[in-house]
């Protein structure tokens, strides 16, 4: 069967087709979910939408780095230690580099476990709380002298 279509009809059909294609494309772009944490350029003006809660969202997959297997028992001991002095005693048996590796490993593990960046443990226990502490600013006597300085470095 042969259908004869005039030039005007062909033009109209191609116009309608173009409109349909553009409309569908526009709809797809409009409904495409935007990345929540897109690495956009920092805003110069206007307030940030970040929550007031001082919890840093984790950006990494949340897996702790590979720790030397010989240090894993020490890491487990540290996790179970309940006082700061016990933790220091456990760390004293290690070299400086090993201490840093173990503590970094534990911090990464805490991040994985809590799903949030937990910068401070609870009373030195080494147990992840997933909660952030509030900085405490306290009243001091007028005679107080600064003990320590912060400065640009």
């Amino acid at each position: 069967m042969t259908v004869v279509v005039g030039t005007r009809v062909l033009k109209a059909l191609s116009g309608v087709g173009a409109v349909v294609v553009c409309g569908v494309s526009g709809l797809l772009v409009a409904t495409d979910p935007q990345p929540v944490a897109a690495p956009l350029r920092p805003p110069v003006n206007g307030a940030s939408s970040a929550s007031a809660a001082l919890t840093i969202p984790p950006s990494c997959g949340g897996t702790a780095g590979a720790l030397d297997p010989s240090l894993l028992p020490v890491a487990r001991q540290l996790q179970q230690a309940t006082t700061a002095s016990t933790r220091r005693n456990i760390l004293a048996s290690l070299s400086a580099t090993q201490r840093l590796e173990v503590e970094a490993y534990l911090r990464s593990s805490r991040r994985s476990a809590s799903g949030t960046y937990a910068p401070c443990d609870s009373a030195g226990s080494g147990v992840a709380t997933g909660q952030s502490i509030a900085p405490s600013v306290v009243a001091a006597p007028a005679s107080t002298q600064p003990l320590i300085n912060t400065y640009v470095s």
Binding site: C60, A64, G65, E101, V102, Y105
Partner: peptide
């Protein structure tokens, strides 16, 4: 190392 990995995160 675990230290560098943690700092990069």
């Amino acid at each position: 190392s675990p230290l560098l990995a943690e700092l990069l995160c």
